[in-house]
Structures are given as structure tokens and as C-alpha cells.
Amino acid sequence: MQYKWTSRLIIGLTLTFLIGPFLIIVLAGLSAGEFMTFPPEGISLKWYLKVFTVDSFRASFALSMFLAVFGTIAALLLGVPAAYAISRYDIPFGETIKTIVAAPIIVPGIIVGLALLRYLVVPLNFTVTLALFLAHTALVLPYAVRVVSASLNNLRSDMEEAAVLLGCTRLGAFTRVVLPNIQGGVLAAFILGFVTSFNQVPVSLFLSGPGVRTLPIDMLSYMEITYDPSVAALSALLAFLSVIIVFVAEKFLGFSRYV
């Protein structure tokens, strides 16, 4: 009996710790007052509506969307063949390559951002958008390789040999037999990459330039000037968006099988 109450208490605390801040943000955004406070002063939807009227939010949301979608697609275009090569062919240093590819997950974003800025973007004079695109692609690549590798390892390679003996080329076997059977993993990698890219702060912080900011960076700088509840409202909206994406993915894909 005592054990039961202890475990309930721990679960309760864990959930409070995880969901509490989210609830505070949602409520803070509902405030009728002029400043971000908790508990909110009155209830109003005006800050949630104001979010959609701020020009810089609109522009930075578009940029973040662009980076998340196309950065992830680029990462998959590189990552799927890489994962395939590592899992199917006896590539020299295959495991080492896998570890190196995973580096952006392990190395702190601040360092990645600074390194990219100092040694790539500045010397080669990249535009801000191109720099951000390349950085986001690199950041998502490890997820693409890992998740797709996992589904490839579950797929027996004799299936491809069977396809070849029925007349396929190796490439044909990949597109006709391998891809259809790993599409769940590829989609899971896409969602994971999308969310990772969209929420990315430290690297984008270094690479963002005048007038070109991702949404999280734009929110940071907005808060430096104005401390109204619209940032809380926007945060809540983004959190809902992430939850919906993951929920839909879990429902239709069994997302948690892949990550």
C-alpha cells in the first residue's frame, strides 16, 4: 500500500515537472494584461491573435518552415543512401562513419554553430539563408542515418537478391523493394528531423543575420525588446503543433517503434 502511494507520488511529480511549464506558458499567453505574468491577469485571446499580426514572426516562421522541410529532405537524400551503403556493403570504417555522422547530436550546438560560422560561413562568404540551410541539413543528417539504418537492418537483404534474379538492376531493387519497405522509417526520420530543425536554437543563433532569423531566434530577440504575453502565446501554439505532429505520427505510423 505504501509502495503504491510512493510510486504515485513520483509519477505525479514527474508529470508536473514535464507538463507544468507547458501549462504555465499556455495560461500566461491567455493573460489580458500587458506583461507576461503568471498567474495571468484576467483571461483574453488577444495575444494569441496578435501573434499572427507580427510581421517578423510571419517571416521567421516561413524561414523556419522552409529550413525544417527542405533541410530535412536534403538530409534524407544524403542519409538514406548513406544508411543503405553502411548496412549493405562492407564499407571500410563503416562504424566510424556512423559515429562521425552522429557527432552533431553529441557535440553541443553552440560549438557546432561557432565552428560553422568561423570556418565555413565567414571565409566562404555564404549568405545567411544558405548557411542556415546547410547547418540544418547537417544537424538533421544523424537522425536520418540512424532511423533509416534501424529499418534497413530489419529488412533482409536476400529480398534484394530475389528482385535481381527476377530481372531488376541493383538500383531497381532498391527503389522497387527496399524503399517501399522502409518508407515508415523514412517518414519517421522526416518527422524527427522536422521537429529537431524547427526547434533548433544554438546553431541558428550564430548563423542568423540581419533580417534573416529563424522563428525561435526571432522570439528571443522579440522578448529582449517587448515583454508582452505574445511570445508565451506563440510558444504554446508551437508546442501544440509539435504535439499534433507527433500524435498523428504515432497514430498512423507507430512512430515510437522507430525512435
Binding site: M159, A162, L165, G167, G172, P180, N181
Partner: peptide
């Protein structure tokens, strides 16, 4: 893929995403 030899694998190596009919039709469709 040019030899015209059939191989029945020990693990069968069927294509999981295709129906029995489409599995059997795979080579002819190619």
C-alpha cells in the same frame, strides 16, 4: 539479372509490401 535463373531462397525472400499475386507478377511486370 540477365541469366534467366530462378532461385527459391531458404527464407523465401518474398516482398512484404506486395500481395501474393504481385509477388508472382514482379518479374513479368519488369
Amino acid at each position: 539479372n540477365k541469366r534467366g535463373i530462378g532461385l527459391v531462397f531458404q527464407s523465401y525472400a518474398l516482398f512484404p509490401h506486395l500481395t501474393a499475386f504481385e509477388n508472382a507478377a514482379f518479374g513479368l511486370r519488369l
